[in-house]
């Protein structure tokens, strides 16, 4: 069974950009969510082994998703992908349990670097 990757962002352009940045040889099933509420639901459905999470979203933002994951002890490795590059924002999401932080705009190099550094992409 391949790994389930969830891309959670309110912008369809950003979701596409993220999906395109994933390493081609990485065999995963990619799922999408358009806001934090959809994201949490997808994680509960087992679609988010690895989650690429935006912060600024309507309904529930990325911070809300991180809090929910922690509170309900949901099994997800979260990589925040955000335009909010203030040092404070990075620290806050790390404190809320995010594994890594990628600055938008995303590209293939940044995605690969993080996936390799944290050993998420293995056996390639």
């Amino acid at each position: 069974m391949s790994l389930n990757v969830l891309i959670c962002d309110d912008s369809s352009f950003a979701r596409k950009q993220m999906a395109r940045a994933l390493p081609k040889e990485w065999e995963v099933t990619v799922h999408f969510a358009g806001d934090g509420l959809e994201g949490v639901e997808a994680i509960r459905d087992g679609k988010g082994d690895v989650v690429f999470l935006d912060l600024t979203m309507p309904n529930m933002d990325g911070y809300g998703v991180l809090e929910t994951i922690r509170r309900d002890d949901l099994p997800a490795m979260v990589i925040v992908v955000s335009g909010d590059i203030q040092p404070d924002a990075q620290e806050r999401v790390k404190n809320l349990g995010a594994m890594a932080f990628i600055k938008k705009p995303i590209d293939a190099e940044k995605a690969r670097a993080v996936l390799t550094e944290y050993g998420i992409m293995t056996g390639v």
């Binding site: 955000s82 335009g83 590059i85 938008k104």
Partner: peptide, 25 residues
């Protein structure tokens, strides 16, 4: 949607500069 995302990234960079200037979030 694309303009919104481009703006999202640009305003984040601007906010980062302002945050460093003011030492605030």
């Amino acid at each position: 949607d694309c303009y919104q995302e481009l703006t999202n990234v640009a305003m984040g960079q601007a906010a980062d500069r302002l945050a460093r200037l003011l030492n605030a979030y």
